[in-house]
Design a protein around this nucleic acid. Structure first.
Length: 421
RNA sequence: GGGGAGGUGGCGGAGCGGUCAAUCGCAGCAGACUGUAAAUCUGCCGUCCUAGUGGCUACGGAGGUUCGAACCCUCCCCUCCCCA
């Protein structure tokens, strides 16, 4: 299958170098994407480039995922307006380990025909000496040209300026590309659209020192129909790590995708083929209330990231919490979904708890003031029943079979609070 | 260097001595409607609590005048525009 055509149909090509399409059409290409270990987990914002790597492999090309154990120690100034805080070496290593595992889910390392690789650029960046770097790499760059780069220019104009460290970042990334070219004959670098500048620097370096023409392709910035930042919800970033974002929340995030974004995201984040996506599009137009596209999207993406079992749990939990009345539900049923939804415990107290205090200490809200505001606005429900009185005293007998409270904030934020004796 | 305009809550943008925690719009949260949508309408919207004619923090920074300052004065910092 033609990778470029696949990308194009899915709307994944924001920009590409001339000849990239042809190069991908003539035999196997080795391409890479870099991942910054700035956090211990990737988030949904990285999902697009991850699927891009997987698409490469599916089309018979050889993908390389590079985790920036070396560059992570510096920090990419692209898109940043202020100097970054440097991460410690241990922190970076920790983050690298977490990210590696997440990337591994998307790639097949055992393929004999189109092998995937996972490398850490610390492998070469930590070894090169300052003198070598300046002689072999630095010599090929004109500071005049570097100063003209947008990301640098913005920072030069800003009050805080830019340090030499961040200024040199793009050279390190260029060196990565060169190293991968030498080691694996890697001739393509992909990335988010903010990486275009860094990618072209690497292409220039390879052209100068090896006389070879390599390619770059950048993916679009993900936008939402409502104009909000993709990948954030009220409760924060949607992470890929199940310890940071429960698979249930992850599933709900996708399920709540805006109608106008659902099909676009199916193309972006799933590997479903064109006929199936087009059928889902038709179904969604016909019966928008069924949210065919959103359901499939949530199902597929959750499966890719967390596995089939997690999807089943997330779907069951969703049906339980949104499906019917809690009254007909057994504690056993609810306890079954307990680990899948945000949940806490509360210590048993005979006399019960003032509702406001209960909400604050269980972590459903951040302060008693917020609890009061929500109750006055009619946005708090205990076991499906709206709390109308902020002075209400919650008693152990109110718990479902004396064991469990289902606390709901607004329409869709469910929390389970279990009583502990 | 000279002249002019301006810095207010997440953003935009009013206010120009008391009734200012600060009009309004956007964003956000909650409610109604619905499809766990969108649009629309309603309420909330610095923050905390014992919820009160409550506490704390806030109109670039530091001082000052005043019973009282986002608002007046002084100095400083920063942004934008015009001229050199």
């Amino acid at each position: 299958m033609d990778l470029y055509g696949e990308f194009e149909w899915r709307g994944l090509v924001h920009d590409a170098t001339e000849g990239a399409r042809e190069a991908l059409g003539q035999g196997q290409v080795t391409g890479y994407i870099g991942f910054d270990p700035t956090a211990p987990s990737l988030h949904v914002g990285s999902l697009l480039v991850m699927t891009a790597l997987a698409h490469m492999q599916r089309c018979g090309h050889a993908p390389i995922a590079v985790v920036g154990g070396g560059t992570g120690l510096i920090g990419d100034p692209s898109g940043k307006t202020v100097e970054r805080q440097l991460l410690t070496g241990e922190k970076v290593e920790e983050n690298v380990a977490g990210i590696r595992a997440q990337l591994a889910r998307f790639l097949d390392f055992d393929s004999t025909t189109a092998p995937a690789r996972l490398v850490n650029n610390a492998e070469w960046l930590n070894k090169i000496t300052a003198i070598d770097f300046m002689r072999d790499i630095g010599k090929h760059f004109s500071v005049n040209a570097m100063l003209a780069k947008d990301s640098v220019k913005r920072r030069l104009e800003s009050e805080d300026g830019i340090t030499y460290t961040e200024f040199s970042y793009s050279l390190l990334q260029a060196y990565d590309f060169l190293e991968l070219f030498d080691r694996f004959n890697c001739t393509l670098q992909m990335g988010g659209s903010d990486q275009w500048g860094n990618i072209t620097v690497g292409m220039d370096l390879i052209r100068r020192v090896r006389g070879a023409k390599v390619h770059g392709l950048v993916l679009p910035l993900i936008t939402t129909a409502s104009g909000t930042k993709f990948g954030k919800t009220e409760s924060g970033t949607i992470w890929l790590d199940p310890a940071l974002t429960k698979p249930y929340e992850f599933y709900q995030f996708w399920l709540n995708t805006h109608d106008r974004d659902a099909v676009k995201y199916l193309k972006f984040f799933t590997f479903l083929h064109r006929p199936e996506i087009e059928e889902l599009e038709r179904m969604t137009v016909r019966e928008p209330e069924r949210r065919h596209a959103q359901r499939k999207l949530a199902h597929e993406v959750t499966r890719l990231v967390h596995g089939a079992e997690a999807v089943r749990d997330a779907e069951v939990a969703g049906q339980k919490l949104f499906g019917g009345s809690l009254a007909t539900m057994s504690v056993a049923d609810l306890l079954q979904v307990f680990p899948n939804v945000p949940s806490t415990t509360a210590d048993y107290v005979d006399a019960g708890w003032p509702i406001v205090e209960f909400l604050a200490t269980s972590g459903v809200v951040t302060s008693k003031s917020e609890a009061t505001r929500l109750i006055r606005g009619g946005g708090i429900y205990i076991n499906d029943e709206r709390v109308t009185d902020e002075k209400f005293r919650l008693l152990p007998v109110h718990a479902i079979q004396g064991q469990l409270f289902v606390v709901r904030k607004g329409k869709k934020d469910n929390y389970l609070v279990r009583l502990v004796r």
